[in-house]
């Protein structure tokens, strides 16, 4: 069996009459950086909060560090850290005191030297009050507090909101360092595709409360392909039926920028056999181009829908 740090099966969660999670599965392997991708309101944050025990679930199975997240003990909680985009500390608190508090809470796991290094790298001013920090500075402080105990499991929910390019770069380097240490695992929910595809080795796409696609970046890019074909006059009928007749053909569409006899088939479970069958359809004359889709294209393909606009 795989060495899963988080293992969730069929997790459901309602808020009032709204089913925010509708049977979500998520496996996070030890030593991986797993990114959750989804549009606003898709259930990413809810799933992460359930995973770390901040929120109960209404159905399904869940394990984090080997135990049910609803029954986490102090031991497990010390081994993980969770960062979201909210600083839940009174604004009058001095940063120095906030750090001292976290150091005491974390006890032996707090690495003072590492904390100092992080404070310096993230340029967090020690003598200010939390309320006087900019949004970006608050985000950096939260990361310092989470990283200074070198958690076995680091769960980041939109950690880069408000961070400038320098701080994002630092964050990515820090995550690289963290994963390099034996057994460190990172789960990150983010809208920043460019950062995510650098730093993540596994992706999970969440849509309408379910994880619809998951795998390594290469697995996903191997599965999703664009096949550009040319069709004979009047021969596109067979091609248009392909999505309902050939498993793995997701959609066939017209590329507005391409010549009128060209169509594009999007495959979400591409095999050589499927591509051959597609090209052999009556009226389809030849394949012009087969290529792996980029993560950005897969994101747009998988998550497109009538949900609200992505804002970041």
């Amino acid at each position: 069996m795989s060495d899963a740090v988080i293992d969730m099966r069929g997790v459901t969660r309602w808020f009032g009459r709204e089913e925010v999670l509708a049977g979500a599965d998520l496996t996070v392997e030890r030593g991986s950086v797993t990114a959750l991708l989804g549009r606003n309101g898709c259930g990413k944050s809810t799933l992460l909060r359930i995973a770390v025990g901040l929120l109960g679930r209404h159905g399904g199975e869940a394990r984090v560090l080997g135990v049910d997240p609803e029954a986490l003990g102090v031991g497990e909680r010390l081994r993980m850290a969770y960062v979201n985009d909210v600083t839940a500390t009174p604004g009058r608190t001095r940063i120095r005191d906030e750090i001292e508090l976290h150091a005491r809470l974390r006890g032996d796991r707090w690495d003072d030297g590492h904390a100092k290094e992080l404070l310096e790298r993230f340029e967090v001013p020690l003598d200010k009050r939390i309320g006087a920090l900019s949004k970006g500075q608050q985000a950096r402080l939260r990361l310092v507090l989470a990283l200074a105990s070198r958690p076995e499991l680091l769960v980041l929910d939109e950690p880069a909101l408000g961070l400038d390019l320098f701080a994002r770069h630092e964050l990515m380097e820090l995550l690289i360092d963290l994963v390099q240490e034996e057994g460190r695992t990172v789960v990150i929910a983010s809208h920043l595709i460019d950062d995510v595809e650098r730093i993540a080795d596994r992706l999970a796409f969440i849509r309408e409360g379910r994880v619809t696609h998951a795998g390594t970046l290469d697995e996903l890019r191997d599965r999703f392909r664009r096949v550009r074909v040319s069709v004979e006059a009047g021969g596109s009928a067979a091609l248009d039926r392909a999505p309902s007749e050939l498993i793995g053909v997701r959609q066939v569409k017209t590329d507005r920028a391409a010549p009128p006899d060209e169509r594009v088939a999007i495959l979400d479970d591409a095999t050589d056999e499927l591509i051959a069958r597609l090209v052999d359809l009556p009226g389809v004359t030849r394949k012009i181009e087969v290529r792996r889709m980029t993560i950005r294209e897969i994101y747009l393909e998988v998550l497109a829908g009538k949900e609200e606009e992505v804002t970041s």
């Binding site: 030593g31 950086v33 380097e173 690289i176 360092d177 994963v179 390099q180 993540a200 080795d201």
Partner: peptide, 15 residues
């Protein structure tokens, strides 16, 4: 080293 190369290319060390 894995770490040095991962950091300078800014890619996941597992890569």
């Amino acid at each position: 080293s894995v770490r040095a190369l991962a950091r300078s290319l800014l890619v996941n060390p597992n890569t």
